[in-house]
Amino acid sequence: MQGKRIDREKLEGALKGFLKEPGQLIFGFGRKGGLVTHRMYRDDLHGFSMFNPYFSINGATLFRRVFSKDVKVLLMLRPCEIRSIVELIKLNQIEPEGITTLSIDCPGTVSLGAERDGLPDDPFEAKDYMVEHRDGMRWACTVCRERRGVVGDLGIRMAGDKSLWAFPYTEKGKAFLATIEVPEEEFKGGFLLGEDKKDAEPFATDMGTFSSELSRCILCKNCRDMCPICYCIDCLFNGDEYLPKGDALLNKIIRKGTDDLPEGRELFHMVRLYHVSQTCVGCGACEEACPQKIPLTKYFKGISERLQGMFSYMSGRDVKEIIPYLTFKEDELKDAED
């Protein structure tokens, strides 16, 4: 594999060079106090945080519905965030023309809301930090499907000998990499982060467990709002067709019998489970946003992997792959009919 051996200074230099051109922006992380936040840079890289093991929101949520063709944006995010962006490009929620996506090897993250000591800002320190704080790692990260920076236009990878490498995957990536003045070489060593192994057993649960875990749900719909790929403006659950109120609710209870309130918790989550099933990247932003700490990622990740497996699809792997529900083969699924 052809790549460039880089270091932090060289990469920052290239990013600063990118910002010098008018109408070019960088979307990445920035330090603020002891914390980390997503930040859009226009002229300088003040407080730029390149590698940090914290997760609060999926950056794709913030970057959604950007359709500008004149402004060029370089996105330097985690693999799960880049994968969400790839899915949003397929769903016509992001204009791919102006953006260059750069994915960074991610050793796992801790919740930004959790207690922490110190803020590592170096990829290898971040890796060591995550090894030390293994118990504090977000559940979604412990079962991550793709933690390697192998998605998007360009990948920043950590080699086993503690050196940083950049690999271009597309023409856009090559164009950006050309601004780093280092000769290209053949990469021979091993990577610090290997391929993740898949679960052998498909996810299975039952309605009773699901229902009792959801009994904590207060239907605030934060999980939907923070989901990067749950993008519909006219969500089914915004009106009162699916979640009736007032007289309609009374009518429904009279018709249906005794019912738990708020009404429609299972309905809301099951419909969302299905609607995001092919595009869910399993980033865990829903669980992060849940004020009741319901283990939502377990269900979303389990169901989406099972349903994506049916069509040998993996969300966010490649912009050219079509979302399974939007295409078909004439000769398939012979046993679908009963």
Partner: peptide, 17 residues
């Protein structure tokens, strides 16, 4: 399209027993 969507939904129902 129905075939794909409903086959996937059936798989989801299977996961929920």
């Amino acid at each position: 399209f129905t075939r794909r969507k409903i086959a996937a939904l059936k798989e989801m129902f299977k996961a929920f027993s």
